[in-house]
């Protein structure tokens, strides 16, 4: 799971400087500064509509950044700098860069017309050009890792929400990403299914995966997170050690939010 490039601890994998995004007149991100170190877990918290998903989607260019600089592993997301100008990348080039960034969605978004196994091997075979037999072997291992080896032949509609989400994690891992993005991976799940998914994520963090996680699971953020970031109305209100920030926040807005969630 480690990045193929030189693996320097402490060098930022994600670096955001004044990132802005607006939909029409609505400013959703009003200058986000954030650094995610290699191998660390960054948890994004904040009220609904604060721009957490939008920021996460900017990181893999599912949304276009309107201003500021956003780099992943030193490369600008969605643009190439040439002289003093930023040139938008072609779809082909964007797709190329997204291969290194895995994403897990709130509503799983598994491909419903494919079995769990086919979901996992689709991208390695079609995008990375891995031989089918090898992709299959790796997919079986990944499904084993998320505890679903016996569900490989099931269609998503035949799996519980928690199982679907774990297949979705395996699917993202199959591309051997150096960064994993999670957008509220457990909020669509029944309470008793949340634990299994969080366990898989915890294991992933222990193995040194760099992760950016939008979550309302305060317990997870406190135990697994290396940094916690509290966002509100398109700005970062406060960021720091989750054991500090989530227990004894400095800002009144953070405190108000936490008192509602806990």
């Amino acid at each position: 799971m480690s990045a193929p490039t030189e693996h320097v601890e402490g060098v930022p994998l994600v670096h955001a400087e004044g990132v802005r995004k607006h939909y029409g007149r609505l400013e959703v991100l009003k200058g986000i500064d954030l650094t995610v170190r290699r191998g660390s877990v960054c948890c994004l918290l904040g009220p609904s509509g604060s721009g957490k998903s939008t920021f996460l989607r900017c990181i893999n260019h599912l949304e276009k950044v309107d201003g500021g600089r956003l780099t992943v592993d030193g490369e600008l997301v969605g643009y190439r700098q040439h002289g003093g100008k930023l040139h938008e990348l072609r779809e082909r080039e964007v797709a190329e860069r997204r291969r290194d960034i895995g994403m897990v969605f709130q509503r799983f978004n598994l491909f419903p017309h494919m079995t769990a196994l086919d979901n996992v091997i689709e991208a390695p075979v079609r995008v990375a050009g891995v031989a089918r037999a090898q992709a299959r072997e790796e997919a079986v291992q990944l499904l084993e890792r998320v505890g679903l080896a016996d569900r490989a032949g099931h269609y998503p509609s035949e799996l519980s929400g928690g199982q679907q989400q774990r297949v979705a994690i395996a699917r993202a891992l199959a591309m051997k990403p150096k960064l994993m993005l999670f957008d509220e991976p457990t909020s669509a799940l029944d309470p008793e299914l949340v634990g299994d998914v969080l366990d898989v994520m915890r294991q992933l963090a222990d193995e040194g995966m760099t992760m950016v996680v939008v979550t309302h699971e305060i317990g997870f953020a406190r135990e697994v997170g290396d940094t916690a970031v509290f966002m509100d109305e398109g700005v970062i209100v406060e960021a720091g050690d989750p054991r500090q920030l989530l227990v004894n926040p400095e800002q009144e807005r953070t405190r108000a939010f936490l008192s509602k969630v806990l």
Binding site: N60, L62, E91, R92, A95, E96, R98, R99, I101, G102, M103, F105, R107, N109, L110, F111, E122, A123, R126, V127, A128, A168, R171, A172, M175
Partner: peptide
């Protein structure tokens, strides 16, 4: 669902 396209794109599919 547009989520399908997004999931595919996030995997690097063109």
């Amino acid at each position: 669902d547009t989520g399908q396209t997004e999931a595919a794109h996030s995997l690097g599919m063109r």
